[in-house]
Every structure is written in structure tokens, then in C-alpha cells.
Deep mutational scan, measured.
Amino acid sequence: EVTIKANLIFANGSTQTAEFKGTFEKATSEAYAYADTLKKDNGEYTVDVADKGYTLNAKFAG
């Protein structure tokens, strides 16, 4: 089991951190699915991958 950390950075400057656990593939998929649920209210996002894929920095356009 691994933990994927998602740093969510919103256009207004606020941030949120979420963690997803499971296999690498499952946890990564859940992190992206969570970011997708936030698109409606926060706009499209881009992701910078860090820490060999164990940290995802998602920046929302607003």
C-alpha cells in the first residue's frame, strides 16, 4: 500500500491537502478523480508530479 498526497492549489490562493491510499494505480486514480469533482466550481487544473509520482500538485485555474 502506498499513499499519494494531493496538494490542491486554488485560484484564490487557498490550498487543501488530501491523501489517497491503496496500490499506486488506485491511489493515483482516486486523486485525479477527486480533482475532477472540484473542476465544476474551481475550473480546469494542471498537475505537476513530484516525489516520483507520490505527490501531485494540482493548480486550479479558477
Rank of each mutant, 00 (worst) to 15 (best):
E19F: 15
A50N: 08
Y34G: 02
A27V: 03
T15I: 14
A31Q: 00
N12K: 04
Y34M: 06
V2A: 07
T15L: 11
K21F: 13
F60L: 02
G43N: 02
A27H: 01
L38V: 05
T46Y: 10
Q16K: 11
D36H: 07
E1M: 14
G22R: 00
I4P: 00
G43W: 03
N7Q: 08
I9W: 09
V49P: 06
S29Y: 12
T23Q: 08
F60G: 01
A50F: 11
A31T: 01
N12M: 04
A50H: 10
S14I: 14
N12H: 06
T46D: 07
K5I: 14
A50I: 11
E25H: 09
A33C: 09
F24N: 00
K59F: 15
E19K: 09
E44L: 09
V49M: 09
K39P: 01
I9Y: 12
F20P: 02
K26L: 10
F10C: 06
G53L: 00
F20V: 03
K26I: 11
Y45V: 05
D41Q: 12
F20N: 01
D51A: 00
N7F: 11
G43T: 01
A58F: 15
F10H: 03
G43S: 01
L56F: 09
A58G: 04
V2K: 05
S14D: 13
N12E: 05
F20L: 02
K39F: 08
G62S: 08
I4T: 00
I4W: 00
F24S: 03
E30N: 09
F20T: 03
A6K: 01
A31W: 05
T37R: 11
T17V: 13
A18W: 12
L38W: 13
T55R: 02
N57T: 13
T28I: 13
T3I: 13
T3L: 09
E44G: 07
Y34S: 01
N7I: 14
K5F: 10
V2C: 10
V49N: 04
A31R: 01
K52E: 15
D51C: 05
A27T: 02
T55E: 07
A31C: 05
V2I: 10
D51H: 02
T23E: 08
L38R: 06
T17E: 09
D36C: 07
G53C: 05
A27I: 03
D48S: 14
